[in-house]
Computed example of a mutant assay.
Amino acid sequence: MKKFVCAALVALAPAWASAQILIGQTAGITGIVAAGVQETTQGARLWLDHINAKGGVNGQKIELVSMDDKFDAKLAAANAKVLIEQKNVTALFLVRGTPHSVAILPLLEAHGVAMIAPSTGAMVLHQPVNKYVFNVRATYQREAEKAVSHLHTLGIKRIAVVYADDSFGTDGLEGARKGFQKAGFEPLVVIKADRLKPDYQKMIPEITGKDAQAVVWVASGNAVADGVKALRAANSAAQVVTLSNNASSGFVKSLGDSARGVIVTQVFPAERSIAYGLVKEAMGLAKEKNVELSPAMLEGYAAAKVLVEGLRRAGPNPTRAKVVAALETLNKFDIGGLEVSFSASDHTGLDFADLSIIGSDGKFKR
Rank of each mutant, 00 (worst) to 15 (best):
M283N: 13
Q141V: 00
N246C: 09
K87E: 14
V279L: 03
A225C: 05
I274Y: 08
N245F: 05
A147C: 08
K81N: 09
F4D: 07
A321H: 11
T153D: 14
K2H: 10
L285E: 14
H126K: 15
G261I: 08
N52S: 03
M1Y: 10
V215L: 07
D211A: 15
T348C: 00
G172W: 01
Q141W: 01
L151F: 12
A303C: 09
A296D: 11
G221V: 02
V57S: 03
A214D: 05
E186Y: 03
T98A: 13
L327R: 04
V161F: 03
E281M: 13
Q60E: 15
K131S: 12
T153F: 07
K289Y: 12
K202M: 12
E109L: 05
V95K: 02
A225S: 14
A138C: 10
D211S: 14
N135A: 10
T120Y: 01
D72Q: 14
K87S: 12
Q86W: 08
L46R: 00
Q86M: 04
K74G: 06
F364E: 03
K253P: 00
Q266V: 00
L285H: 11
E292W: 05
S167D: 09
V57E: 06
G43F: 12
S244E: 01
A53M: 05
K365S: 12
V89D: 10
V340E: 01
P205E: 11
D361S: 14
S66T: 15
G337S: 12
A238Q: 06
M1G: 11
L311Q: 03
G209N: 05
A326R: 08
K2Q: 09
K61S: 11
T90C: 04
N317Y: 12
D166H: 07
R158T: 13
T319F: 13
D49W: 02
A302N: 10
V148I: 15
I191V: 11
A219R: 08
V57T: 06
P99L: 10
D226Q: 15
T170S: 07
A53S: 15
I207C: 05
T348A: 00
G209S: 08
A219C: 09
A282M: 09
V136G: 00
A53H: 06
E339T: 03
N88A: 13
I23K: 02
L12Q: 12
H347E: 06
S149T: 15
M67A: 07
A144N: 07
V218G: 08
T40D: 04
I32K: 11
T98R: 00
A233S: 14
E174T: 15
Q42P: 01
L327D: 05
M123T: 06
F333G: 02
V241P: 01
F352Q: 00
G36F: 10
V136M: 02
N222M: 10
